[in-house]
């Protein structure tokens, strides 16, 4: 079933056209990888889907579960099952991870007319999900991302993903700056969370992560446009040719 449909999306930031006619359809159960050189618009696409302010939609539309996504505020998108794993997770001194997740999960459950968790249930769920990303439970009582290493921040994003169980998860360069162990942990987290009812959009600069998370589709973004789509082989070709080649020649012929 179609989950997300992006049609001819054009987006400006401070008067520069960053996305120049994106078309993309994501169905339940699929993993899509979006690759592209720096400045191609990958992160802008992620931010626009998650509902960050400061972007001017010039043209096009985004349909998510039959809703006009661009009209929804960011928190409603999250409540409807959209999750963005940030490239640069924000530090929030004074708010503990536990309190943050408890607030988020309960807000989402309220929205979905589900019972909110009591403290004990919640703690057990958090401990279980923390195990998934191999985080010591002591991190739950630390302030959100404050003083976390790069790897810890990214693991915390996957922890939150596990807690919120989204329908559509967008990972914005989650692999950047990760060592091989953290990369494996992040990938295991994603693989264990994927199922036939959810979907992932994995934005990455490198092919590396795609050795661990096997995508169904790979799209190449350049100058705000998807210039080529294919299967996982495309990522390998891209690795071989490099982005310079694609910038000059456009499409890679297998």
């Amino acid at each position: 079933m179609s989950l997300l449909k992006i049609e001819n999306l054009k987006v400006k930031v401070e008067n520069n056209l960053i996305l120049n006619g994106i078309n993309l359809e994501v169905n339940e159960g699929e993993i899509h990888a979006i690759m592209g050189p720096n400045g191609s618009g990958k992160s802008t696409l992620a931010s626009v889907l998650a509902g960050k302010e400061g972007y001017e939609i010039v043209e096009g539309s985004v349909w998510y579960k039959g809703m006009n996504l661009l009209e929804l505020p960011a928190d409603i998108r999250a409540k409807e099952g959209i999750f963005l794993a940030f490239q640069y997770p924000v530090e929030i001194p004074g708010v503990t991870n536990a309190n943050f997740m408890k607030t988020a999960v309960n807000e989402i459950r309220k929205y979905r007319n589900l019972e909110t968790y009591d403290a004990m249930e919640f703690l057990n769920v958090m401990k279980e999900k923390a195990k998934l990303v191999e985080m010591d439970t002591s991190f739950l009582n630390r302030s959100v991302n404050e003083g976390f290493s790069g790897g810890e921040k990214k693991k915390n994003e996957i922890f939150q993903l596990a807690m919120l169980e989204p329908t559509l998860a967008i990972l914005d360069e989650t692999d950047s700056g990760l060592d091989i162990d953290a990369l494996r942990i992040v990938a295991n987290g994603v693989n264990s969370l994927r199922n036939e009812h959810n979907a992932f959009i994995i934005i990455t600069h490198y092919q590396r992560l795609l050795n661990y998370i096997i995508p169904d589709f790979v799209h190449v973004l350049n100058k705000g446009k998807i210039i080529q789509s294919g299967d996982k082989e495309l990522a390998l070709h891209l690795e071989e040719y490099g982005y310079d080649w694609i910038k000059q020649n456009g499409i890679i012929n297998n």
């Binding site: 505020p73 940030f86 004074g94 988020a104 919120l164």
Partner: peptide
Amino acid sequence: FYLKSRGIDEFTAKNLLLKAF
């Protein structure tokens, strides 16, 4: 935005951040 992207509405997000400060 970080808090909103986790499903927390703007009012609650501001509350949480102000209190944390």
